[in-house]
Amino acid sequence: MNRASQKRPFPVLLWLCAAAALTVVGCRSSSPQNSYVVREHLHQVEDVVVDRRLATYLKILSPISERRQGRMEVQVQLQNDQYRELKIEWQVEWYDAAGIQVAAPTNWAAERLGGGQIKTIRQVAPTESANSMRINVRKSDAIEG
């Protein structure tokens, strides 16, 4: 066997992997999401973490809730706890005392957090019956061009 034929398997595999990667990249599924619940008068969050990696570098800080003009208002801070920029999306859902969702979840909002950046999110309940807010966050899942 000569030298040229000995080298053959590796380039062929590389070509195959590259082609497969290029085709598969177009059909990835939605990013998993982490959820954080803020209840009225409780200045802490209950978390449901699915994407553990995202949870390690995206922190939910300083939850505050208060009722103003009969509606619950919530403020939370999202902190990118790493040096690199982080592209995420978030949406909120509102629930009443019985745990029933009081309105459709908000649209996903895109957020770009620089290294260490803190973004304050302030939301007001869509109805007076809402007494807890769930904020869902996930890595950017935009329909891109």
């Binding site: 070509w15 590259a18 497969a20 290029l22 085709t23 996903w108 899942d141 935009a142 329909i143």
Partner: peptide, 30 residues
């Protein structure tokens, strides 16, 4: 080599072509 790569691409491509319903709330930056 090119033939092998093209074959691989063709083999994977059909799995990705689809029409589906999607989340109307998804962020769009087309």
């Amino acid at each position: 080599l090119f033939a092998a790569a093209a074959f691989a691409a063709l083999a994977f491509a059909p799995a990705c072509s689809s029409v589906k319903y999607d989340d109307p709330d998804r962020v769009e930056t087309l």
